[in-house]
Design a protein around this nucleic acid. Sequence first.
DNA 1: TTGGAATGTCAACAACACTGACGTATTATT
DNA 2: AATAATACGTCAGTGTTGTTGACATTCCAA
Lengths: 170, 170
Amino acid sequence: MTQGQSRSENTRGLLFLTDEQLRKGIEAMFFAYRGFTADPDRILAEKSYGRAHHRALHFIHRSPGTTVNNLLATLGVTKQSLNRVLRTLIEDGLVLNEVGIRDKRERHLTLTDAGADLESALSNAQSDRMRSAYRQAGADAVYGFCTVLEAMMDPELKEHYEHLTGGEQQ
Amino acid sequence: MTQGQSRSENTRGLLFLTDEQLRKGIEAMFFAYRGFTADPDRILAEKSYGRAHHRALHFIHRSPGTTVNNLLATLGVTKQSLNRVLRTLIEDGLVLNEVGIRDKRERHLTLTDAGADLESALSNAQSDRMRSAYRQAGADAVYGFCTVLEAMMDPELKEHYEHLTGGEQQ
DNA sequence: TTGGAATGTCAACAACACTGACGTATTATT
DNA sequence: AATAATACGTCAGTGTTGTTGACATTCCAA
């Protein structure tokens, strides 16, 4: 029941993968993602923000001066959904919303000092766990980790990921 | 700003990790998780179910006859939240709810044939992407992937993960 | 028999996503 | 100059998923 489905593929040089291995990976993703968000969630709960606020802060920090449309595409949500979050962040003085110079329809988003402080607190909480996991697992494991994650992304989302990694690095 | 924080730790034999590497891992998790859930989400949307239904079906499939309390701990939600999901699954004839024999307070949960069909459809959709990612990345990468994910889990959640992987495997 | 554990249910609420519609600038196109 | 398209914001409604709190029931065990 767990075995015997892709032996022929093996002869074509493909990795042999049991249902068991795949299921294990699926459950690992589920449980690990819970750990991944747990620490920032605790900080956010104190300030009555949610994960959506964290994501917005993160990507505005990563791409200062980004536009609303840009952020929309990266986060993969509707403008109504993002707007709710952005509005509170702007009202609370964590994010700046400036009219574009070349194109006045656009709004450029930047973190204020207070916004950068919160972003940094959230980022540190998440990075601490990540660093600890990386060190437990070792350098080779980290490389494999990222390789598999990248292969799991939707092609369209992967472009956003690579654009962040490659381009506009300050 | 991205550099120079843990050079001293390096001499103690610890992995040297830049903020950039950590941030990349964080973003990889974010984008990959979206891909991870995208395929089952499409199937669920057709049947007007959500991810919570998927998770319940998955873990009932994994541990047939599990109790509500057990499932609660694995999923990490409140009984009220799980109850709403279970109720619809039971009403729709996807899950069986049987009073325990030894302890009649407990309810043992099992998938019906229809429930197993849906679980299998969801599982296959998710596994297909996983398999493709695993093959793109290679066997070593897969090993590293799981190692890092396991290191990221909360210890309490990791027990659930290991219990599933190790025990009650028929 | 009393206390506690397991389960279920009701109600209220909040976060976060969605759709659809509408308005207002601003820019681009014809 | 008129028209279309773009970027953004907002209002209203809906759905899923999570949370608390309160309360009833059933059953086990001391």
